[in-house]
Design a protein around this nucleic acid. Structure first.
Ligand SMILES: [Zn+2]
Ligand SMILES: [Zn+2]
Ligand SMILES: [Zn+2]
Ligand SMILES: [Zn+2]
Lengths: 165, 165
DNA sequence: GGGGAATTGTAATGTTATATCATTTCAGTC
DNA sequence: GACTGAAATGATATAACATTACAATTCCCC
């Protein structure tokens, strides 16, 4: 009965659909909030969503530089700051990298499963983890503001297929 | 009935005792394992244990430079790698910094409560969090190798005392 | 189309971490 | 007590990640 197994995207899924969906949600959310999803910010979001692997700021910069003369680190970090503030992406602390949020409508700190072999990331919103964390913090007299839960290991594909680096 | 509240060190505790205890355990463990806790590594461990706040690699380097001419980044990072490998310290991913382990005898991934105001860190080993994480990962078909759980918020002291920056 | 805020451009710098090769130290051996 | 190979450290350079500061531009609202 367990084995939901839909947390990871799956090797041959229609990723174009992931991207279109993410972009459409972003447009709609920003429009609703009166936030300006400019061409630059939209493009950075697309780059983050180019796959289900964390993307580093300088990876984004490399892509941007091919498209806009004079892109610099602040160009990227400002766009990332906006996307983080709007909850459209998450920062993966253990990787110094960023990944698209799969449920940007409501603000949350998710949990992340990150594959050591292929880097694919699954975003979870597990109420059990959340409750356990809140309980432990309360027991210590600690008031929680932000949670970073990042689990490294092997994704379903890489467990079975061997370590296809 | 809850409120264990002993996770955080407490403002006026005997920190000399913390340090002496940590160093004695480190000596004993390394001796047992045939690992060489050299003068440099011992000193770096002491610096990490100078308080209950995360210490950055370059903070350590600053201290070392006053004591040894020619200390350089690799000097610090090699010592940190050794201490991490021996389980004597933990790396806090969300801070790019390091903290002494309170239970180095057995290898583990702890959970960390980090105060936004005073930076004090409490290390937890909460079986509930652990079980929740393992359960969620299993449900996704993911095999866990390393867990990073870092919770930011306000420690008991800073909640009551107001934000004494 | 003018004023003011938000966004982007541009240059420099700060912070964290690793690669590479030379040298020293140390335990075990002869 | 010198010899030797492995571990540890010294030393230089560079990579990777992120921020500060100020100028120029764009955009919204009037
Ligand atoms: Zn996809
Ligand atoms: Zn994988
Ligand atoms: Zn203490
Ligand atoms: Zn505090």
């Amino acid at each position: 009965m367990p084995t939901d197994g839909d947390a990871f995207p799956g090797r041959g899924h229609d990723h174009g659909h992931c991207v279109r969906d993410a972009m459409a949600r972003a447009e709609s959310l920003c429009s609703l909030r009166g936030a300006r999803l400019t061409a630059l910010r939209r493009r950075v979001l697309e780059i983050v969503w180019s796959g289900h692997k964390p993307v580093g700021a300088y990876d984004i910069l490399d892509v941007l530089k091919r498209e806009r003369a004079g892109a610099q680190p602040p160009t990227v970090y400002r766009a990332l700051d906006f996307l983080l503030a709007q909850g459209l992406i998450h920062r993966l602390e253990s990787r110094n990298a960023y990944a698209g949020c799969i449920a940007p409508d409501t603000r949350h700190d998710s949990q992340f499963l990150i594959c050591r072999s292929c880097a694919t990331v699954a975003e979870l919103d597990d109420p059990g983890i959340d409750a356990a964390v809140r309980g432990a913090a309360a027991g210590a007299g600690f008031s929680v503001e932000h949670r970073a839960v990042e689990i490294e290991g092997l994704c379903p594909d890489c467990r079975t297929g061997g370590d296809h680096a």
